[in-house]
């Protein structure tokens, strides 16, 4: 009589069932499992503990784990929904789902607002805007005089801060995005639509088929 071993698939802490994540997001079960392949790769690049640490996130984005980048830091903080300093699998999938081409536009607009609200005051202030423009210039090795940076910030506030109270609130932000739709293009990642093509290794391992 033959003998076989049933090896139970063990997942790291923070793992969530793809079927649950697929029911909450625009991803199919197959795509969530493909994202798990990507997550495993990212979360084991420095410490193999099934969690994405900030250094691992930076390593994936910049090929170095010690590059300071304001926007990457903000994205990491928003992905870290539980605010415990790491990104778990469920957080990774839920956060990335906002970048899916089929995700609701309102979610993309709200996510970007939170990203730019550096101090989480519920508004984007002129000072935060200046900080972001200065950081972006610095991170791209560009230099503009402070006067020019002030002009850019002033011009933006003139356009967006329609209540003239020195800050952009949620309502003003939505109106501003309506007039400048190109600014939310960065909230869509086309790669998320063809995930199982990007990670074909998964299809070999999966018993699930969306086709």
């Amino acid at each position: 009589m033959g003998c076989f071993c049933l090896k139970k698939l063990r997942h790291k802490p923070g793992y969530e069932a793809p079927i649950n994540l697929a029911s909450e997001t625009p991803f199919t079960v197959n795509e969530v499992e493909a994202l798990y392949d990507l997550f495993k790769k990212l979360s084991s690049s420095i410490i193999d503990d099934g969690l994405i640490h900030k250094e691992e996130f930076q390593l994936a984005l910049f090929k170095t784990s010690n590059k300071q980048n304001l926007f990457a830091d903000r994205i990491f903080d928003l992905f870290d929904i539980k605010h415990n300093g790491v990104i778990e699998f469920g957080e990774f999938v839920r956060s990335l789902s906002v970048f899916h081409p089929n995700a609701p536009e309102a979610d993309k607009i709200a996510f970007l607002f939170r990203l730019y609200d550096l101090r989480q005051t519920g508004c984007i202030e002129a000072e935060e805007l200046k900080e972001m423009v200065t950081a972006l210039l610095c991170e791209n090795n560009l230099s503009l005089s402070e006067d020019v940076v002030d002009l850019i910030v002033e011009k933006t506030m003139m356009e967006a801060d329609t209540k003239r109270d020195g800050k952009i609130d949620d309502e003003e932000w939505k109106e501003f995005v309506k007039k400048n739709p190109s600014i939310i293009k960065i909230m869509t990642l086309s790669d998320l639509k063809e995930l199982t093509l990007a990670f074909p290794s998964f299809v070999m391992n999966s018993g699930v088929s969306d086709l």
Partner: peptide, 25 residues
Amino acid sequence: KPVSMNAFELISRSQSFSLDKLFEK
């Protein structure tokens, strides 16, 4: 011509903000 753009356009056009690299092999 950065002054003709608003700050959010500048940010969105820069490479500072791109998650595409997460998907690079």
